[in-house]
């Protein structure tokens, strides 16, 4: 059915959803909580930081403790506060970011159920905006993700020429907000020119010590930019912060690109140089995740290259591995 952004926004607000949407800040786009549809920019390729941030924030408190008590220290689990997390609707999220959440669901509900992520996931509605052409640096086609894929969406929007949207309701959650005909999302179509993931994985399985890793990692500067903007990266650090009277434990984003990521208390570092760290990044996405969850952990959004100070391009790197 045909809808305007305002109609969609109002329907969500009526159902008490807080609305998160792409907002322009200078020449950057960030997913931001908005109070009016006028703040939203849907004429965009992708956000700087993936929408995952609204489910897996850059920092969050997971536990609190009283730092003054000398006995019977009270520790409160912050899960309780998180279960009452506000209902959230993310409008204008791209199919690659939606796909990334399906990928993250696996790791966050595997041996340990991450209640923080899962509670937010439960309370979040995804109003996806399909893409009509590949943006600069996007390579979802290479990882076999269709840019108009409805998989994982609750509501799906396609842009009409007149500024309105063709809206389809995809899930039950979506139907609660927009009663009406529900469509069955199409089986994931494979895109024409996709990577041969099996071939890539087979090469990765056998070439942990190949010289390609030295060469490839030479220019990498060991920062966290690629991981922090990536919609599927999910590593985090757990740290305690305290004042004299109280303290808390936080879960903060972390990146395998940092030297400190793997350092042992003894001082030994099993990934002493960028070669081992960058190799881990590729292996985690195209081998380990496949081993564990039968899925690659890259949706081809191209953000990692866009923020990389030295333009490390996963599309080319993985493409070169495929040709090996």
């Amino acid at each position: 059915m045909k809808k305007t952004l305002k109609e969609i926004f109002d329907a969500l607000r009526t159902k008490n959803y807080r609305v998160v949407a792409p907002v322009r800040d200078g020449n950057k786009i960030f997913f931001t909580e908005v109070s009016s549809p006028d703040e939203i920019t849907l004429d965009y390729v992708n956000s700087e930081i993936a929408a995952k941030e609204w489910l897996f924030p850059r920092t969050e408190v997971v536990m609190k403790f009283d730092n003054l008590a000398t006995e019977n220290v009270e520790i409160s689990d912050d899960i309780e506060n998180q279960t009452v997390e506000t209902l959230t609707a993310i409008i204008g999220v791209r199919p690659c970011d939606v796909k990334s959440l399906l990928i993250l669901d696996k790791v966050f509900s595997w041996d340990y159920k991450d209640a923080f992520y899962l509670n937010r996931r439960e309370n979040t509605v995804l109003v996806t905006l399909g893409c009509s052409k590949l943006g600069d640096g996007c390579f979802c086609d290479k990882v076999a993700l269709d840019m108009s894929s409805q998989e994982g969406s609750d509501v799906f929007l396609a842009q009409n020429g007149d500024g309105s949207f063709e809206m389809s309701v995809v899930s039950d959650k979506g139907a609660e907000i927009f009663p009406g005909e529900k469509i069955v999302p199409e089986e994931q179509k494979t895109t024409g020119d996709a990577f041969d993931k099996k071939k890539i994985k087979a090469w990765l399985d056998g070439n942990f010590e190949d010289e390609i890793w030295d060469k490839m990692a030479l220019k990498c500067l060991s920062c966290g930019a690629c991981a922090y903007v990536c919609p599927t990266c999910h590593c985090f650090d757990v740290i305690d912060e305290a004042s004299i009277s109280e303290g808390c434990r936080r879960k903060n984003w972390d990146s395998c690109g940092f030297g400190q990521f793997t350092i042992h208390a003894s001082g030994h570092n099993p990934r002493p140089s960028q070669k081992e760290r960058f190799r881990n990044r590729i292996l985690h996405k195209f081998k380990y995740y496949v081993d564990k969850f039968d899925e690659t952990a890259c949706v081809g959004c191209g953000r990692c290259r866009k923020v990389c100070p030295v333009n490390m391009n996963l599309r080319d790197i993985v493409g070169a591995i495929e040709k090996k």
């Binding site: 850059r58 500067l221 060991s222 920062c223 966290g224 930019a225 922090y228």
Partner: peptide
Amino acid sequence: AKCIKCYACRAA
């Protein structure tokens, strides 16, 4: 408030 602590500024 935008800083994500990626330390790219330091790395570059």
